[in-house]
Design a binder for these strands. Sequence first.
RNA 1: UCCGGGGUGGCGAAAUUGGUAGACGCACAGGACUUAAAAUCCUGAGGGGUGAACAACUCCGUGUCGGUUCGAGUCCGACCCUCGGUACCA
Length: 938
Amino acid sequence: MYPYDFQKLESKWQKAWDDQQTFKVGSIKEGTLDPSKPKYYVLDMFPYPSGKGLHVGHPLGYIATDIVARYKRMCGFNVLHPMGFDAFGLPAEQFAIETGTHPAITTDQNIDNMRNQLRACGLSYDWSREIKTTDPSYYKWTQWIFIKLYNSWFDEIDQKAKPIEKLIQSYENDEYRIDPKGNRIAKSDVGFQHAKKWKTFSSQEQEAILSKDRLAFLDDVTVNWCPGLGTVLANEEVTADGRSERGNYPVFKKPLKQWMLRITKYADRLEKDLKDVDWPEAVKQMQTNWIGKSEGAIVQFSLERNKEEKVSVFTTRPDTLFGCTFMVLAPEHPLVDHLVTDEQRQAVFAFREKMAAKSDVERQSDQKAKEGVFTGSYAVHPTMPDRRVPIWIADYVLMGYGFGAVMAVPAHDQRDFDFAKKHLLKIRAVVEPHPKFLKEHALSLMEYLEDPGALDVAYEGEGVSAQSDNLEIDFNGVTTNRAKEKMIEYLEKKEIGQKKIQYKLRDWLFSRQRYWGEPFPVLHGSGGSIQVVQEKDLPVILPEMEDFKPTALNDENASPQPSLGRAKEDWKEVTIDGNSYIRELNTMPQWAGSCWYYLRFTDPTNKNTFADEKEENYWMGNNGVDLYVGGVEHAVLHLLYARFWHKVLFDLGFVSTNEPFGKLFNQGYIQAYSYQDDRGMYVPAFDVQEEEDGTFTYEGQKVTRQLGKMGKSLKNSISPDEVIDMFGCDTFRLFEMYLGPIEQSKTWDTEAIVGVHRFLQRAWRNFVDEESGELLIVDTKMDDKLSLIVNKTIAMATKDMNEMKFNTAIAHLIQLNNLFVSMDKIPLEAARAFVLMLNPLAPHMAEELWQKLGYKESIAYASWPKADQNILSQDKVQVVVQINGKRRANLEVDGSATQEDIELLAKQDENVKKHLEGVTVVKTIYVPKKLVNYVVKP
RNA sequence: UCCGGGGUGGCGAAAUUGGUAGACGCACAGGACUUAAAAUCCUGAGGGGUGAACAACUCCGUGUCGGUUCGAGUCCGACCCUCGGUACCA
């Protein structure tokens, strides 16, 4: 008996791949890789080794990349297909806390477990290149890159990062000076003559000046403090409703001194360069929105009581400046203390306190309330000096965007409008609305311009300016876009404003108070001086700690405290040349390690550099990573951060491409049904019965069903191991791909697996007589019909493989296989083509059949079959005969048939004849090899 | 609110990008094999109508309504539902 024994076969081949190191990739340095061959770098977003193990949703992307990797090998590429583990960060530490074991131990256990699960999926990784971000030999280079960031600045003129020494040189050469406000100004800027020279500053002052340009810097900022996680979080890690993305805990705003990375300097390039990458439109859109570019102007308002004092605002509608009737500052705006009058002091302070006490969640729910108080002070209107502009504070103005202050134009901004209505402030119309708008509100233009406050909405659209003139300028009748330009010209001429591009993107808050992360390579000296660790002293090893729990867990009033504060003194304190330093006690966030791991894979064990230049050049050259597959959830986190680091490394000359990931592909989620009983408790999905009336029961009780994520807590999780045990890994791989397009979300349905399993069994029986073990292959030529079908299948499967449409590629193989069923023996050529095409999808069976066909070498590097164009062109074509666009007959004709041939045949067809009776053909449409359509009239 | 994706049989889906809608698979039904079941194999099937007919023909069908076209799942306009992203961004 020679049945299809997948358990035996699959372990046989997995062992063979291991023993023969089938998928090990050579290295250029060592001369074991031929760099004249084209390369293909196909990468998965590496996983967090969580304690829960994988469910069937996780390998979806891994299987897809594996198919691509195997296909590309067969097409003659050198393929880099590595895997590693993103092991620092909250999930690992949370799991360690839950189990009471040190994260170093649990992480390694989880990695072992996950690696086994991945191996069981028959993935052709080069495991010799495995990396984990928690390995000191890896995070040494994460720290090294941090030092590069610290020692770099962004030159706005060249739009690129440069070593900080260049900036110091420029200062020393007196190309830059510091103006009275503390800003760096260049020779060509106004005011350079009166600005202070570099030499006049103390070294401490010089360091403070430099820190304003360093790409990594310490700053006092308003942070997202998440007591539930015991750490602060980046903006990208906080969800829309003011909760932590991980764990869904509430987040509070708090001022704190933290490490920041100056990602905002790259806002423009991060946005613009998206056009150069082949990424899903959705992800590009998300990044574009997140970066949030908007064009407008800075406008300066003088204070009434002292014209020398100014408040700056950003506006996208400088054309509406004449309509500004008040100003609003964010409650935490630094000028508020200064502006508030004695009468208003009490009210302002009370308001501020009330706002500060709110969590982000509460702020969300109080949205649109438009609460605020008057500071008591007035500004002067920049174009109408006799107009007083009261200054208010309100929490609808956010400190983090623009200048934390707005000029309110209530007639043409809904938020300002609501605020004006609530607090009885003036509303002045300065744009003539579209006639449609007036009609909708049954107003004449005169009536609207007279009293725009009569409506309950602002007119935010474009139009022509009105009531916008003073002694110097007159914008009346000018269209919005033109008026914007003219106003900016005017503001610049009067030196009270200028053009400005504003981004929503904020700098990246880079420190965390948790234990399980990369230590900063930073030393704090006396008097607040900062020094980075010398390269030769890297890595700064994360110290062993017994108690690694976050310090201020679940205490929203406490201030965040780094866990490393409880490390032993001999770690915390460092003496260099007789000076003592304290180590930085914060750790880097989860995302640090994943910002550059794809570079390390090109040369994972290098001790002298993060990756050898030759290896980096070869694998990353051209297009960066050729195919990067992962979930869409990283659209504005990992993918934005990694692009940022990569661009800095590119500017500094360490990498060869401007973008890290040439092509990105998002796989969909696998969803599953979960079931709840009437108390809302989840019941094991596996044991739920479907009743005839379409309802569901568990142990006789009615339960409700919903579609969603797979998870242990939902009791609907299925692990790949279970499926592989039952059906084998080839079946599992085929099934996941056959569910539908990879980028789509799909519902798991265990019952449907038998379909592809049957396909494999049938294929086996087509090749092997199960009774005798005899190979059912015959070494004869294929007949024309079979040859045509085989070549067609090759053509279609090749196209599908190139487009990553594995579901239809499988369908074509099933069809070919179904044809084999009707044959006693399969011609060798057809069998070969089938096995070769099967290989990327179901590699174990393909290897076994390949061996049975007599080949000694692994099929992994055999050539993908080519379709014979000559044979394809001999194909008969199906031509449709339509009458008035309705199909009346099908004809099968030679590919060479002319229109005359086809029409002759068509007119012989009974059904066509019938429909052409008693009518006249007014037009004939002929599409070669496709159809004839007669347009007829009675 | 704005932005993006998606609505096709009982279900997952396919459709050469404007040219026979539903390939392939699941589930289902009937049959073969079997003491029986499983496995396997064969056959059927979008919905309706005219047929004695498993012949043949025919009408309707891709979220809704309208349009362009000889011809629309595919293009255009309006709308509905759904899934993501965003969160007062001045």
